[in-house]
Design a protein around this nucleic acid. Structure first.
Length: 201
DNA sequence: AGCACGATTAACT
DNA sequence: GTTAATCGTGCTC
């Protein structure tokens, strides 16, 4: 893939909800020791500032959430449920804590590597969850804070395939537990509703 | 210093 | 539909 197709920093230095919507269809690329692994982003969620009670930054700036306060276009990767790593992209002005959770991708390159990283799991479930895709792409704490707009990084996001607005399904975020309203119902989850276009050669 | 819980997953009944 | 796995983080004592 061409270096010049990497999404530049200004794309991320905007409203987190808008970025979450526009990340649908972009290509997430991981360069591992074994080779390239990539997939089209098919599901995202926006987490918007310390006032958003579903956002980790609700507790203010801590060692864990520090990257969310950093520059847009960097990766915020955190550990949860004692075993899972989740990948987010920092958005907005430096100092404002907001990020987009990458919830699912559609595998494109490095299928043999993904298969290896997801042994015992059916192809349809290789990367259809936020912790599944980080396992498939070998993403962990060592990539926390990495610049996703830098061609020297081992993780970046490229221009992918255009997704029409009417093929993006909007709903409320999931897995938020006891998060109170209105945050629980904010329409900040985006996903491709019709995957038929992927089946074309 | 101790504790409850989580932006989940996979394996159950 | 239900639940165990598993541990860093942030809050309470």
């Amino acid at each position: 893939m061409q270096i010049n197709s990497i999404i530049p920093a200004p794309f991320y230095n905007r409203d987190v909800v808008q970025v979450a919507r526009e990340l649908i269809g972009k290509r997430l690329v991981r360069r591992s020791d074994a080779g390239l692994i990539s997939g089209i982003i098919s599901e995202t969620e926006a987490y918007n500032g310390s006032q958003d009670l579903a956002c980790h930054a609700r507790a203010g700036r801590t060692a864990r959430t520090a990257t969310m306060y950093g520059p847009a276009g960097h990766a915020y990767i955190y550990f949860t449920y004692g075993m899972h790593w989740l990948l987010n992209v920092v958005t907005g002005e430096e100092g404002y804590p907001a990020a987009v959770l990458i919830r699912a991708i559609l595998p494109q390159e490095g299928l043999d590597l993904i298969s290896k990283n997801r042994t015992g799991v059916g192809r349809e479930h290789w990367t259809d969850g936020p912790a599944k895709l980080t396992r498939a792409l070998l993403i962990g704490k060592e990539l926390n804070g990495i610049n996703l707009t830098n061609s020297d990084s081992n993780l970046w996001i490229e221009a992918g395939v255009p997704i029409p607005q009417d093929n993006i399904y909007v709903s409320s975020r999931i897995g938020l537990g006891k998060t109170p309203e209105p945050w629980l119902s904010m329409p900040w989850r985006f996903r491709i509703s019709d995957l038929a276009f992927m089946d074309k050669p």
